[in-house]
Amino acid sequence: MKRWIVTVIIMLIITAAVIWEQTYVNQTFINLETKVNALIISVEACGDDNADTDENKALIADIEAYWLKHEQVLCYLVKHTETFQISDAISYAKNFIEFGNKEEVMSALHKLSYLGKVHSYNMGTSLENII
């Protein structure tokens, strides 16, 4: 009887954890993509001018703060090397906004957007991950 109870409790905890993980990963990457897209639009609006505007700096700082906050939780769920790739891409984007030209900024942002899409796939539950 005790074993039944323990087994059912374990099943319930795993079910709850799986649902929470999937929801959390999905929401984190949806929000990240929204923020990155907003920054891409802002950088494109700079035209031929430098992307080194206060608005762009504020947007990338917001992305960085958002990611740093959620990366700590994601590290409990996925391999740290995967979260590091996104941290790395954000770092590049931030530096290019400050010191680089517009093409470098766009390249870094598109890479960040791509990594976000790919890792949301890998970190969540998908048929490709299972098989």
Binding site: C75, Y76, L77, V78, K79, H80, T81
Partner: peptide, 8 residues
């Protein structure tokens, strides 16, 4: 032995 892999 690999700290980059979550304990879960």
């Amino acid at each position: 032995s690999d700290p980059t892999i979550p304990i879960w």
